[in-house]
Structures are given as C-alpha cells and as structure tokens.
Write a protein that binds this DNA or RNA. Structure first.
Lengths: 341, 341
DNA sequence: CTGAAAGCGCTTACAG
DNA sequence: CTGAAAGCGCTTACAG
C-alpha cells in the first residue's frame, strides 16, 4: 500500500502509449497491428511514443480477444533419452526452431513416452493451450495422437498410421524407395546374403524401410528372411546384429534402418573381428552425425532432416494463417557413399 | 480457402458453468481455484457442472488478471546439434520435464547459438512472456544471459560466471573436485604422463574441471602442461587427442572433461593402434550413455544429470511460488570404474 | 482517418 | 458463504 509507487514497475499499456501520443487506444492498436488506415504523421507519433515508453503488447490480453495462443506444441512421443540420443531429431528440431524464429509463434516442448488420454500433455493440447502441434516420431500405439488432427491443426514428422485421412498433414521421405536404393547398392556390390536391421514394427518408417529392402531383394531374385527389428538405438542395433549373426553366420551385408543402429552393429562386428566392408558391408539410413562419428565412416541413405523440420513448421504456420498448403510433402533422399559399403 | 476451422464450437466459459450450476461466476471461480469458503453442496454442484460441460479455464484470461504466464523458458545457448548431440543434455531435460509434469507450468523451448540483445529470444524473455527461465550450458560470452537474473527469476544449470551475485541461482556439481577425483584414479594406476582434454575455456565447467586435473597432478608432484581444449563434441575430442599425441607421444593417460569427447579420443587412439587402457588409460566425465555406447566401456566421473535437471525446475518453481529455496545447490559425484582406466 | 464503446474470460475486493 | 461490479490489456465493429 505505502510503497505502491515503488513497486509499480508494471510495463506500459496501450492506454499509456495513447496518452503519450495524444490519440485513442484504438489508434495505437491500429498502428501496432500495422493497419493501413492511419495517417502517416499519426503513425510516426505513435511509434515514437512506443519507442520512448518501450511498449510491448501484452500477450495474454491479445490472446484473449484474438482467441489465438500464438504457441505451437512440439510433441515427442518418446523416451527423452531416445529423442535426445538420436542426432536425427537434433536436425529436425533445428529445422523447426529455425522456421519458428522468423514467426510470432513460440514452441512448447512436450516430451513423454506415453500419451494416455488424460495425461497432462493430452489435456494441454485438447484444451486450447496451443494453436497447433508438430508431432515427431509417431508410434501406431499412440491412438490419441492419431486422432489429434481432428481437434487441432497438426503436422506430423513422418507418415502417421492414418495417413490417408484428409486432415492428416505430414512431411516425409519415400522410405520404401530410399531403403530399396540403399539395398540395391549392396546388391550392386555383389552381396547376396543381405540382412536388415529394421526399425520398430509399430512405426511407419520402420515398416516402409523394411518393405523397401524386401522390394530390392525381390527385384534381384534374392529370397530369405534375414530381418531383425531394432528400436532405433545403438544398443538395439547391436542386439539385432548379434541375433542376425546367430541365425546366419554367412551374412555378407546389412541394410540398417538408422545410422544410430548401424553404429551399434559396427561395434558388434568389430568385437567379432569381422572386417567392414570386407566381410560384411553396411548401409545405414539418415546420414546423421552418427554416420561419421564412429571409426567406420558409414555409407548411408541421406534424408534431409533439417529441411524436413523446417517444412513441418512452415506447413503448420501456413495452416494457422489460413494459407494454402500441401497436405503431404515428400522430400528427396540420396545415397552417400563412404567406407562401410 | 481452408474451411477446416469452420464452426468449431467454442469451449464453455465460467459464465456458462455458473448458469448450469445456478450460481454466480464468482462462486464458480472460487471452487475452480479451491477456495475454502464455499459450502460443500455448492462445491459439489459446481464440480458436477464443470464435469458435465467439460469446462477448462481459459489460460489467457487467467494470465491477464493474475499477471502470470504459467510458462517457463528453457534457454539453450548452443548450436542445436551440440545440444541434442550430447546425452548429458538429454538427461538434464528429462529431469526438467519430469519436474514440470507435476506442476501447472509449461516449458517454452529456446535454442539459439547467439543471444544478441535484440534477438527474438532475448526480447521474449525480457517482455514478460514467461514467469521464469532455466538456462543450461552457459558461456561467459553470453553477457545478456548473465544479467538475465536481474530481470526474471532464473536458475542456471551449471555455475554461471557471475555466480557470486546474490540473485544468481544455480545447480551444479563440484567440478574441480570431481575432476581431481578422476585424475587421482589415473595417478593411482601409476600413470605419470596424464594429459587432459578440457572443455571450452569460456565455460565454468571447462575451467573448473581443468583446475581439478591440475590440482590432482600437483598433489602428486607431477608437473607439465599437457592440455588441449575441446568443445564438448566427439569431433572436438578427437581433434584434441591428436594434438596431444603430436605434442607428446609418451602420454599414458588422459582425463577427458566429457564422455562425448572421450569417445572421440578413443576413436583416434584406435586408429593409431594404441590399446586402452594398456597404452593409454582414459577417464571421462558425465557417465552419460556415451560412456557405455562405444566399444570401450569408459571409466568416468558420474554427475547426476537427471536429478540436476529436476532440481533446476523445482528450484525455479519454488521461487515462482514465493517459497524459500537454496540459491546454490551442489550435487554429489562419484567415480564409475569400467574398462578404460 | 479516428474515437467511444463493447467485449474477450477470468479474479477479487467489496458488500451483504 | 455468496453475488454484483470493476478491472486485467487488448481488438474491432460501429459511427462519425
């Protein structure tokens, strides 16, 4: 009470700017929002006052009347360690963050391994706390997330299971074709016992890459079932490699559905004294830093992760602005040849 | 053109709940906020109405009157690839996210390599868009961030340069002592040519760990200057290892200031045909997944990264609630012995 | 081109 | 214990 004047370090309001500039609140609001129907001199005066008072619009007040939060949720349905552990995500987030930088939107981070219908994140998304969401790494078991697009503008990173729905937007690569390309490279090397370390069977990326590997083998008239699933982690890749070798020691090549898993496979092969690519040739997937971080430089299928992230963000923002966008955006891949195959 | 947001029914308001329950807005507000001075029966009625209408308070309206955003910024003054590339951060963020989960706060992610005084993030933080901030990985060159604590409640992950200021809160370990512990282990192994791959010279964690290495050597009467700085990345560790060996091929041990850099060093030693720990013993720092992800299981100094993250969040939230907290919280470390030393 | 006025959905003294 | 009323800081028809 007594020290009120001292504590009043409250930021300036529209009202105060209006007073300082000798105009009405409405007018100040108009220049703040770039309305064209304000006379040049008034615009100048108001801007001067804004500058002088260091005025910044109150976000909550704006949200209240505009019914927009100007916030976007980044939803990561994964263990934190999986998410942060894979350089692929680093690139995607980098792209997203970069695209957001030039917008007025803010990114809310939501990492959770389970999206129960009444988890905090689930409620948060449902209750209008954000204008839209970007979902990366989508498992088919996340039923809630699958239906999220009905509630909120969403863009998925990677094709979600219900990708045929008209309101499901996503950015992806042609995983099957990309995997086939990697596998064909192995075939071109003269390899015939070409196994695969696949991604999780509950993720489209896992499924599609496996299909691509299969397709390439079929084209070459090779038939076998040398497949083990990993979980896109180093340890998972190592485990799968061991299982594969147990089943068939004559394997001479492996197409691995992610570089991270490939590094796990490499470690196992090293321990067993196998030479790469001499004994076993390896083709990875992603071309993430993991491909070049180990002691074997991996030949791998590049997907433009950072650009994919940027595209996810820009697609979502465009939708929020009511602009026209593609529903599905497929980016190109290519083989990067290094030492492992 | 997109008619997707056609007639999405507006969410129910306090007003509607009040009407449904046959009471005033004030009363509904009181039960929503858990006021004790509402009669039990009314509470029940109101809650029933809330349930029935699926009412959720409007965040913006609340923010506007309460002058609180209920948002916390997670500020990462690093390249995205650096941030996501290091499992240490994964653990810290995991801890932060976990602590936030049980609160009403939301996490805004801000990754940027430069915090110019008028960058988007800088303005964002200054302009009252969040109630507080957590800053991880602080470089002394980030002058703006150093002063951030004057503007906003902030908790730093790791001691910031101006850590003696009374309003600077942080969570950390005793980096010097922890590094000395790691180095002493090497000394105990009988090594004498003990080099170090240090962290950046502009980060307290880098500086302090170097000091600890120095201290341990001094205690043992060892004197030399075998130090190379890395940037906490795999590549940086590899580079430093090469430089060290160039300067002195007789090195028989290395204390490395992060596990990630240690894996880079290991790769280089492998390529040169050096055995670990036979020719060169290695002690890392962090005990992050990087310590056990490669083909050499690293002996390392454990810091409780996840707990540190939790503590950062809980400290900040406590401050925002006006509760008493420690200004500085130092957590314990210990040596984890594995194969590299 | 400009201002007065209503309203966005909530909270909180202030009176009963 | 409860309600009427004022107000948080903004935007936007609506009249001039």
């Amino acid at each position: 009470m007594t020290t009120e004047s001292r504590t009043r370090r409250l930021p300036p309001t529209l009202e105060e700017v209006a007073a300082a500039a000798g105009v009405s609140r409405s007018t100040v609001s108009r220049v703040v929002n770039g309305s064209t129907k304000v006379s040049p001199e008034v615009v100048e005066n108001v801007n001067a006052a804004i500058e002088r008072l260091n005025y910044v619009p109150n976000r909550a007040a704006r949200s209240l009347v505009n019914r927009q939060t100007m916030a976007i949720a980044l939803v990561v349905p994964e263990e934190t360690s999986r998410f942060f552990g894979d350089p692929y995500f680093a690139e995607v987030v980098h792209g997203i963050a970069h695209a957001m930088e030039s917008s007025d939107y803010v990114l809310n981070l939501h990492v959770a391994s389970r999206f129960a219908p009444n988890s905090k994140t689930t409620k948060y998304l449902r209750d209008g706390n954000v204008d839209g969401a970007i979902v990366v790494s989508h498992h088919s078991s996340d039923i809630f997330l699958s239906g999220l697009g009905d509630t909120l503008p969403v863009v998925f990173g990677g094709r979600p299971i219900n990708s045929d729905q008209p309101n499901v937007y996503y950015v992806d690569v042609d995983n099957a074709e990309a995997a086939a390309m990697g596998t064909r490279h192995l075939i071109g090397l003269g390899r015939t016992r070409i196994a695969t370390i696949a991604g999780p069977a509950d993720m489209p990326a896992g499924i599609d890459r496996t299909a691509g590997w299969h397709r390439a083998l079929a084209e070459a008239g090779i038939e076998h079932d040398l497949i083990e699933h990993g979980d896109f982690t180093v340890a998972g890749g190592a485990r799968a490699m061991r299982a594969l070798l147990d089943r068939d020691p004559s394997i001479d090549a492996v197409f691995v559905a992610s570089d991270l898993m490939a590094t796990g496979a490499v470690t196992v092969l090293r321990q067993l004294g196998k030479s790469i690519p001499g004994d076993i040739a390896i083709v990875g997937f992603d071309d993430s830093p993991a491909a070049t971080g180990g002691d074997v430089q991996l030949t791998t299928v590049l997907q433009p992760s950072r650009e994919m992230g940027e595209k996810m963000a820009s697609m979502l923002i465009a939708r929020l602005r009511g602009e026209e966008t593609d529903r599905v955006y497929i980016m190109g891949t290519r083989l990067v040849k290094r030492d492992s195959a």
